[in-house]
Amino acid sequence: MSAIAFPAVKPTSRSYSPGNFPQTAFKAQNGAQTIVRFGNRRVDSTLQLSFSNISDSQAALILQHYEQVNGDWNYATFGVDNALAGNGFEINIYMGETASGLRWRYSSPPSVESVYPGVSSVSCAFVGVLDGN
């Protein structure tokens, strides 16, 4: 298992959710609620990236990255030259999941839409996974 850096393609839009803490709520008939927590670290953060009107060669780099990450159960890493472009350092700690221990993996295959000869738009979705040792 190794880190595979995302190719140097900057997204057009980006959406991030920090995920939630694993817990289950039980509610009694009288309305009392009990919550059982299973951990103190958040999981299932999500990152959605869209790349509009990029070249076909850049789209191919993303598909190649998808194969590299999933072919050998690796994980994706991001930086300011790709998915985290335009972000400040503080928020990149979260969006890059550099301190949380979460690892980015594709939650679904990238979607490629052909726009024009040589031009495509790509959408990617990632989920932050807390790998057990």
């Binding site: 900057k10 472009a85 031009v119």
Partner: peptide, 17 residues
């Protein structure tokens, strides 16, 4: 076609149809 990305400060374009 709009090729502006997140870190850009000015709109960038390529020709379409």
């Amino acid at each position: 076609l709009d090729t502006t990305t997140l870190s850009d400060t000015d709109r960038t374009l390529i020709y379409g149809v």
